[in-house]
């Protein structure tokens, strides 16, 4: 256990160092969420005038959702980068050492978590610049970050697992599009829950993306519903455990094919 945590930390160190050598990646990965944040918040500004829309600022409503989406789409890269390591033989080299398999995954997830915090800080900063004010204060914003990371963990683990089993970046990209796009639209990221069609609302109750969005939105609201936040985070934590288990076992499939 201790060895596993120690090894994960070393692996995270390797990935973070690589990230720091290419900070342009963080910026590139931010392009889409920034675009969404700026364009959607302007485009649908009047949406809050619809009777029943709880908040008065669409920007304040949208920002938590965009932070969650940024985390969701960032997970795709995690799987891509493990394929690079596979192709270069780096994964094989580590598999021939006593390192725990789970550390090879956990190290990547840790690096992704750090990346997400940096990106989320930039997004929140941008929202504040555009005039958004969050009643939840600093605690609320930190909780929102936690929600985004807790959503990213299971999906990043899934993308790593698919990457190891397929060995192809194309497959990971296709799987990501296939899974993530519906999850994004069948949620309340862009529209208040009481205003989306009933069938979407029904589906969104089982949508992990929506769990994170609801919890994150609650966290930055004036009167956070702690029961909702706690429950959603617990569900996401459970999903993370399943995801990491899957990714760790994907090494077995990979090793059968080498």
């Amino acid at each position: 256990m201790i060895a596993g945590i120690r090894d994960s930390w070393y692996m995270a160190g390797r990935h973070l160092r690589n990230l720091m050598r290419q900070p342009v990646y963080i910026a590139l990965m931010l392009f889409q969420p920034v675009l969404y944040l700026v364009v959607f918040s302007q485009l649908f500004k009047k949406i809050t005038l619809i009777p029943g829309f709880a908040t008065t600022s669409y920007l304040v409503f949208l920002t938590p959702g965009i932070i969650i989406l940024n985390a969701l789409f960032g997970t795709a890269w995690s799987g891509m980068s493990i394929i690079e390591d596979v192709n270069r033989g780096v994964i094989d080299r580590f598999l021939q050492t006593p390192i725990k398999r789970v550390s090879l995954i956990a190290g990547r997830l840790t690096q992704m978590g750090v990346t997400l915090i940096i990106q989320s800080l930039i997004l929140v900063g941008l929202a504040l610049l555009m005039g958004a004010r969050f009643s939840g204060g600093l605690t609320g914003i930190l909780l929102l970050f936690l929600c985004s990371i807790m959503l990213a963990l299971p999906f990043a683990a899934l993308s790593n697992g698919i990457a190891l089993m397929s060995g192809q970046q194309e497959t990971v990209a296709a799987a990501v599009n296939f899974i993530l796009l519906p999850l994004m639209f069948l949620s309340t990221v862009f529209m208040a829950p009481n205003l989306v069609p009933g069938w979407i609302r029904a589906i969104s109750r089982y949508n992990p993306v929506n769990w994170a969005v609801e919890a994150g939105r609650a966290a930055v609201s004036p009167n956070p519903n702690w029961a909702i936040i706690g429950m959603r985070l617990l569900l996401l934590a459970g999903l993370s455990v399943v995801g990491v288990f899957f990714a760790t076992h994907a090494f077995k499939t990979y090793q059968r094919s080498v």
Binding site: R14, N18, R21, R88, G89, D92
Partner: peptide, 12 residues
């Protein structure tokens, strides 16, 4: 183990 191709991390 020394593999037939290089397995060093190029970005380190």
């Amino acid at each position: 183990v020394v593999d037939q191709r290089s397995t060093a991390d190029l970005t380190a």
